[in-house]
């Protein structure tokens, strides 16, 4: 089956109020072309599920597309805090639910396994259990110890960026896998963006690096530099110059409007031109 889509078709396929899991981690392999398209034209009122989030959460908050964020982390690592996330957390304008890295994985895995929750010790002794009422303490029916029930997380959509995909939806990840396979399996519908779309025959040569399987995938968008301004190992690194520009703009409402105007679009080619063109990106970012 040919699952190739255009960015604008992806935006149209995602209804208002959808729960969206986003792959990648921190400044690594975030599906930024898909996220920018949703920030530009998405119907909004989204619930986001991220394990280690950053620019995707901040951009969708900054364009007012979000009603709730489920997260273990949102930030820009050594570059600083996420400005829109920080503002929304401090003002309470959006609902937030703090999870942890493993419990996000466990919640997605519960959906994959079609069980209502998975047990863990994670969170005991911390305030995560005090502020997140999705988790429940319960008593182990066999041994009597206290455990935490992590409820299933059931995304309507997963957005994932991969190095290579074929038109049927198989995806190759060549760097760290993060929690992308779990996102793809747990979501009702999974959309891949790919640096390059290749034939099924060519993709199959990647063997064990084909981590995303087509039985879990509904759409494929070709987007070279589609993770920019995050990195996509082993092709290109995160663009920290652009991260600095983003953070400067996001900290100031006036600059932010100009940033959105210039960079936030569902036309990926326009974005690449706005950040200086592919040649400039190769020089700055290829490793």
């Amino acid at each position: 089956m040919n699952k190739l889509m255009r960015l604008d078709e992806v935006v149209d396929a995602i209804p208002a109020g959808s729960t969206i899991a986003v792959g990648g981690s921190s400044l690594s392999r975030k599906p930024m072309s898909l996220v920018r398209a949703l920030a530009a034209r998405g119907r909004g009122d989204f619930r986001l599920i991220v394990d280690v989030g950053g620019p995707e959460v901040d951009l969708l908050l900054g364009t007012e597309k979000v009603r709730q964020v489920i997260y273990a982390f949102v930030g820009f690592e050594i570059m600083g805090l996420a400005p829109h996330f920080r503002r929304a957390r401090e003002s309470g304008s959006v609902a937030f639910q703090e999870w942890t890295e493993f419990t996000v994985m466990a919640g997605l895995d519960a959906t994959v396994k079609r069980v209502p929750f998975l047990p863990t010790h994670v969170g005991l002794g911390t305030d995560v259990l005090a502020v997140n009422d999705a988790f429940r303490r319960f008593t182990d029916p066999f041994g009597g110890e206290t455990l935490v029930a992590v409820p299933a997380l059931a995304p309507d959509f997963a957005l994932i960026h991969v190095n290579l995909a074929d038109p049927q939806g198989n995806g190759v990840i060549l760097g760290d896998g993060h929690v992308d396979v779990l996102c793809a399996k747990a979501a009702k519908r999974t959309i891949l963006s790919a640096e390059r779309v290749v034939s099924a025959e060519e993709l199959q040569r990647y063997g064990r690096d084909v981590q995303i399987h087509r039985i879990h995938v509904d759409g494929v968008v070709e987007a070279q530099w589609g993770a920019h301004f995050t990195g996509c190992a082993p092709y290109y690194r995160a663009d920290l110059r652009h991260v600095q520009d983003y953070l400067t703009a996001a900290r100031d409402p006036e600059h932010w409007a100009a940033y959105v105007d210039r960079f936030v679009s569902d036309r990926h080619a326009d974005y690449i031109a706005a950040v200086g063109g592919a040649e400039a990106l190769i020089g700055r970012l290829e490793v």
């Binding site: 982390f73 920080r86 942890t100 005090a130």
Partner: peptide, 26 residues
């Protein structure tokens, strides 16, 4: 690493607990 001030109305929202609960539980 989560917040300065109360969680639901933080003076400074930091980043979220990330994997620290995993570490301290095990």
């Amino acid at each position: 690493i989560t917040a300065i001030g109360p969680w639901d109305h933080p003076k400074v929202a930091l980043v979220g607990s990330r994997g620290i609960p995993e570490d301290t539980s095990h």
